[in-house]
């Protein structure tokens, strides 16, 4: 067995599994904001005392001290006192509840672990589907251009040039007024805007291949275009395709956050990896974990996809089997 491929596959399976069982695995609801003052930007591994107040609010305290009259509470750097009748979960030596941040919290006191798990669902779904869309479009256009050549090739490539030239920010602003944001729209947008570069690469590679002796020989022997495509061309564009897909994964997940800026992405409350990374920007220098936690998840996924892609190439490539 091939080590890299196995590791990659395992990692991907784990990530996918985590996404699926997120609601059962996550320790807190992804949007729970227990207490901004006491719980914001807490480092991974922090455990806090959860003081339940009678008016329905929760206070997260670094430390509590029980007094006969009530409770002294260290919250957000200052000590305050609350009476016995103001707290619902009082015990003899403090309060009954704890709030644990395994991977730290963001500036809304939301639990990063829970958001990471829930975010995997949003981000992976969007990434996989939009990349599949971009990949199909890119491969189709690239292959048709390379095989047809001549006027068709020229026309297709000029269309690609045109699309690359369009000011996409303007396109998106206009679209934001015309379409309602939804996961479907988001996937369509990301897919439709992401295939141009790939189609050029595919076309370039295939045209190069068509010049090669082994392909020429096949053509001379009367091989059909579909046969050529399947037997000689597609296997050889696997490398650039794998690179493109691996790289697209990272950029699609980050782009989804950029689209939120225009009101086209996921709403700010829906957890997504891209949103979490972009959101952490403001707190980056004060709380490294806010961007690093989703960032690490993204890196691990990207690397896993890359390993699997490389492994698949080795299996598919006739010369390396």
């Amino acid at each position: 067995m091939d080590g890299g491929f196995t590791i990659g596959l395992w990692a991907l399976t784990l990530v996918a599994l985590a996404a699926i069982v997120a609601p059962w695995l996550a320790p807190h609801p992804p949007n729970a904001q227990p207490d901004l003052v006491g719980g914001r930007l807490r480092a991974p591994g922090t455990t806090l005392h959860a003081v339940q107040l009678r008016d329905g609010r929760t206070w997260l305290a670094d430390a509590v001290a029980r007094t006969p009259e009530g409770l002294r509470i260290l919250r957000g750097g200052t000590w305050t006192t609350r009476g016995v009748d103001e707290i619902t979960n009082l015990t003899d030596d403090g309060v009954a509840d704890r709030w644990r941040y395994w991977l730290g919290s963001d500036r809304f006191s939301r639990d990063l672990l829970s958001r990471l798990l829930h975010g995997a669902r949003t981000s992976l779904l969007i990434a996989v589907l939009s990349i599949a869309l971009a990949l199909s479009l890119g491969l189709a256009v690239g292959a048709v251009a390379a095989l047809a050549g001549g006027a068709v090739d020229a026309l297709l490539m000029r269309i690609v040039d045109g699309l690359l030239t369009l000011p996409w920010l303007m396109v998106l602003i206009t679209l934001s007024a015309l379409v309602r944001p939804s996961t479907g729209t988001l996937i369509a947008l990301l897919g439709a805007s992401g295939w141009m570069g790939l189609s050029r690469i595919v076309r370039g590679e295939m045209r190069g291949l068509l010049q090669r002796d082994f392909v020429r020989a096949a053509v001379a022997m009367g091989a059909g275009r579909l046969y050529l495509l399947r037997r000689h061309l597609l296997p050889h564009v696997w490398t650039p395709v794998v690179i493109s897909v691996t790289l697209a994964l990272g950029s699609v997940i980050l782009a989804e956050a950029a689209l939120s800026f225009l009101g086209l992405g996921v709403p700010p409350t829906t957890p997504s990896w891209g949103g979490m990374i972009a959101d952490g920007r403001l707190d980056m220098l004060r709380a490294w974990w806010v961007t690093t936690v989703p960032g690490a998840a993204l890196v691990i996924t990207v690397i896993a996809v890359n390993l699997v892609g490389d492994g698949l190439r080795d299996r598919l490539d006739p010369r390396r089997a």
């Binding site: 691996t246 972009a278 960032g295 890196v299 990207v302 690397i303």
Partner: peptide, 22 residues
């Protein structure tokens, strides 16, 4: 080299920019 390149890919450019500036 490969891991570094993947890291660079998955890293948003603002991240590198802010760190470098800091």
């Amino acid at each position: 080299v490969r891991v570094v390149s993947l890291l660079l890919y998955a890293m948003p450019s603002f991240w590198l920019a802010l760190l470098a500036m800091e």
